[in-house]
């Protein structure tokens, strides 16, 4: 089979990437999605030592919340997974973060990720702005961890480690990773020409996600390209109401997949996809090595 898959980026920002994977089969698209969710390594707080906790939340609750704090993981490849590392040098797998806050005012104190004291500047919480008591600048708030009232105190020592989403969802770099077959629309022009202008407009308005439009000059129905079409079939139902169910036909193109991948902020979305391909390649390579071993033995 000489068919090579194609991939093009439709839209990309620092938060998400939309791309189209075409000329391939569902199993490849699903592998890309699954690897992006569960196997791209990131760094997250894994061990928490509670030194002092007089807040209203119990120790476990706070440890869990700290684990879910997104840490920028661009340098995750410099570190090793604890399971891979065999040496004694803990600095190769551990990243230290500390938190020591006491509320001394009458107002409730919001302890956020901005209170974290990070030993390594490469692994900071997403949107980190350290608390600077001297300046009264209004920094954007971090992720809320706990609220303290007067005289309550929280002192914890955290160790962040590299991991993958398969182990725990806190290591997953994506918030959303979904794909959908590209819709193909066909309009039966013979039938649409029999509709009144009002019926045409009704048909256009029946779609919650617009896929049809009415050309104001020629008063004819036209197809509007829309990648976010949800296969809701509303316009087909509407056409059936008019007794002309065959006006619109919508088919899913089964070898073209529109992806939407939104990151959590720990890795840039473009990087996540790049990592995904690298991980898939290393998986396929491990099969190759295994097969060579089998062939040599037989």
């Amino acid at each position: 089979m000489g068919n090579t898959p194609k991939i093009i980026i439709r839209d990309a920002t620092s938060d998400f990437v939309k791309f189209t994977l075409s000329n391939t089969c569902l199993s490849v698209a699903n592998a890309v999605r699954r690897v992006a969710i569960a196997e791209v390594p990131t760094v997250a707080i894994d061990l928490v030592e509670i030194v002092e906790n007089s807040s209203v939340l119990c120790d476990e609750f706070i440890a869990h919340r700290l684990g879910l704090v997104p840490l920028v993981s661009d340098s995750a490849s410099d570190y090793m997974l604890p399971s891979e590392y065999v040496g004694e040098d803990e600095a190769k797998i551990n990243v230290h973060l500390n938190l020591a806050v006491k509320c001394s005012s009458d107002h409730t104190l919001d302890v956020t990720t901005n209170h974290l004291i990070c030993a390594d500047a490469k692994f900071l919480p997403v949107n980190f702005h350290p608390i600077d008591s001297d300046s009264n600048k209004q920094e954007p708030p971090g992720v809320l961890i706990v609220k303290l009232r007067k005289n309550q105190e929280l002192v914890v020592k955290c160790i962040a480690r590299k991991g993958i989403g398969k182990d725990h969802a806190k290591w997953s770099p994506v918030a959303t990773a979904v794909y959908k077959c590209e819709p193909e629309l066909y309009l039966n022009e013979e039938l649409t020409n029999k509709l009144t202008d009002r019926e045409k407009l009704e048909l256009v308005n029946s779609c919650p996600i617009p896929i049809l439009r009415l050309n104001q000059h020629t008063k004819s129905l036209e197809i509007e390209r829309n990648d976010s079409y949800a296969y809701d079939d509303e316009c087909i139902k509407k056409a059936e109401e008019f007794g002309k169910g065959k006006i619109v036909e919508i088919k899913a193109k089964e070898d073209t997949f529109n992806f939407f991948l939104e990151g959590t902020g720990v890795l840039r979305p473009g990087r996540i996809v790049l990592h995904t391909f690298k991980i898939l390649l290393s998986k396929l390579d491990s099969i190759k090595v295994g097969l060579e071993l089998i062939e040599r033995e037989s």
Binding site: T4, P5, K6, I7, I8, I9, A12, T13, S14, F16, V17, F19, L21, T24, V28, R268, P269, G270, R271, V273, L274, F277, K278, L280, L281, L284, D285, K288
Partner: peptide, 24 residues
């Protein structure tokens, strides 16, 4: 392997073309 390899190279050049968006 060939398919994924080709996807990876295509992705790298696609990223190059959207470099300014911050998605890389």
């Amino acid at each position: 392997t060939e398919q994924v390899e080709s996807l990876k190279t295509q992705w790298e050049s696609e990223l190059e073309s959207v470099r300014d968006s911050g998605a890389i």
